[in-house]
């Protein structure tokens, strides 16, 4: 399958799967480890990929959450993410996609402007997280957040759905983004 669809497979019992897409393998690995360390009532599965589309020969469970990791230091990661976005079905963007921008701490290394990523997230109506994945503490916090989000997206939290979370998380529009 070239395009990821959220309902291609039936959900596994008590299982939640997250897909991390990004160019920095090391960072992704660290984040995955941090996430797996978190306490969670359901079974967590973390998939890592550099870009989409995923190979179709592999038998994988239903993906509940996709997080695109953009490194503000390299323009290539942004390009990669943008290309990968074409392979995701539109229905995925109803709360099951998130963007993660890393490397915002070192301003002198940043080659991508914050606004670029902001505009990207605004275009896809998806939440955007800023986190410096190289710092341990931030990584742990981020992992916690992602785990909670994954649980909701997988439907393990009664009363809250992915779409609900999306609308709750959306803050009032940023003033400088109104003239996009």
């Amino acid at each position: 399958m070239s395009v990821l669809r959220p309902q291609d497979q039936l959900p596994g019992l008590n299982a939640a799967t997250i897909l991390l897409v990004g160019t920095d393998d090391a960072l992704l690995q660290q984040l995955a480890d941090a996430m797996l360390k978190e306490d969670c009532a359901s079974t967590l599965k973390v998939h890592l990929a550099q870009s989409l589309p995923l190979p179709s020969n592999v038998n994988r469970p239903r993906i509940d959450l996709i997080v695109f990791v953009v490194n503000l230091h390299s323009k290539y990661s942004l390009q990669n993410v943008e290309e990968s976005l074409h392979h995701v079905d539109a229905t995925f963007f109803l709360g099951k996609v998130g963007f993660l921008a890393t490397g915002a701490g070192q301003d002198n290394h940043c080659s991508i402007h914050r606004n670029t990523v902001l505009r990207l997230a605004h275009t896809y109506r998806s939440p955007l997280f800023f986190c410096d994945l190289e710092v341990e503490g931030f990584r742990a916090t981020m992992a916690q957040r992602l785990v909670r989000m994954l649980q909701i997206c997988a439907g393990h939290v009664p009363g809250v759905s992915a779409l609900n979370l999306l609308s709750l998380m959306r803050s009032s529009e940023n003033p400088f983004l109104e003239d996009v």
Binding site: N14, D25, A32, L36, D39, C40, A41, T43, L44, K45, V46, H47, L48, A49, Q50, S51, L52, P53, L54, P55, V58, R60
Partner: peptide, 20 residues
């Protein structure tokens, strides 16, 4: 190109509710 994805099974939770 893409790397073959890795699968990792989560460690069993520490709370009393066990899996299966």
């Amino acid at each position: 190109m893409e790397k073959p994805s890795e699968e990792q099974a989560a460690a069993e939770p520490a709370d009393s509710v066990g899996e299966g």
